[in-house]
């Protein structure tokens, strides 16, 4: 399996997009840290930008990569290799190279300019989000053979999790404002990995004091080590479910 990952890596490194992505993140983080203000402020701005761009780039890049490596996959399935292994190698190859780009582009500046627990959580969240959205991209790619359709599904997923979902949550909160919704919002958060990541980082910044009752509840649950563990556990679940689902579909499909 490591052999196949090696060739997937080669292919991605030759492709300049990952390099451009690294540079983009690097410029973004260095710029934000040097814009003045406290490192905490910079982390907050960085968090918002990261949670918007990382899922988008991960999901679009991974989907196009999957369709472009169809020939590679076809070449390998005629060899004595388990299909699941081919799939997992593709997944790990893409997810690890994008995470590597993220750690270089965001992790290094954070370490240099604002090393803190919050910074660590930001980097961890970014890595998890990368793995999650690459998994969703692969799910979108195995569902349909049509490249345009696959990318369409991938973009819809991004739209849903990055933009639409928050709208729905706000709508629910607004409509049911008379009821105690603290627990419900907590559950709603778990259903969106981007929100989950945002809250993990936010709660470690002082701004969480501004979030009212819900914020207090979040803080009481997620502020503890146990809660952070739970949140990362949920993120892990967000990786495993789509990966296993798409692996299953891939191994039972005609090529």
């Amino acid at each position: 399996m490591s052999k196949i990952i090696k060739y997937v890596f080669y292919d991605i490194v030759k492709n300049r997009i990952v390099l451009a992505y690294t540079l983009f993140l690097l410029l973004l983080s260095i710029g934000l840290f040097n814009l003045g203000g406290s490192p905490d402020k910079a982390l907050l701005s960085l968090l918002n930008l990261v949670l918007l761009t990382v899922p988008l780039i991960s999901i679009v890049f991974a989907t196009t990569h999957f369709y472009n490596s169809y020939e590679f996959i076809e070449l390998l399935v005629a060899q004595p290799i388990n299909r699941k292994k081919i799939f997992m190698s593709e997944y790990l190859g893409v997810a690890c190279s994008l995470s590597g780009a993220f750690v270089l582009g965001v992790g290094v500046p954070v370490l240099v300019f604002g090393a803190s627990t919050t910074g660590l959580y930001l980097v961890l969240t970014g890595v998890f989000i990368t793995f999650i959205f690459v998994a969703m991209a692969f799910l979108a790619s195995v569902i349909t053979r049509d490249k345009a359709k696959g990318i369409g599904i991938a973009l819809l997923l991004w739209f849903y999790f990055a933009l639409i979902y928050d709208g729905i949550v706000l709508f629910i909160l607004y409509s049911f404002a008379d009821y105690p919704l603290e627990k419900a919002t907590l559950a709603l958060t778990a259903l969106n990995p981007i929100d989950l990541g945002r809250i993990i980082v936010l709660l470690n910044l002082d701004v969480s004091a501004l979030m009212g009752y819900t914020g207090a509840l979040y803080k009481s649950i997620l502020g503890s080590l146990w809660g952070i563990g739970l949140a990362f556990g949920l993120l892990l679940l967000w990786i495993i479910v789509p990966v296993m689902g798409s692996r299953r579909i891939f191994s039972r499909r005609d090529l």
Partner: peptide
């Protein structure tokens, strides 16, 4: 299964290879 494919050599009708 997959291990049996070590006994098979396959030449496809239209060979598709990674272009790069």
């Amino acid at each position: 299964k997959h291990a049996y494919r070590s006994q098979i050599g396959y030449m496809p009708q239209i060979g598709k290879y990674p272009e790069n």
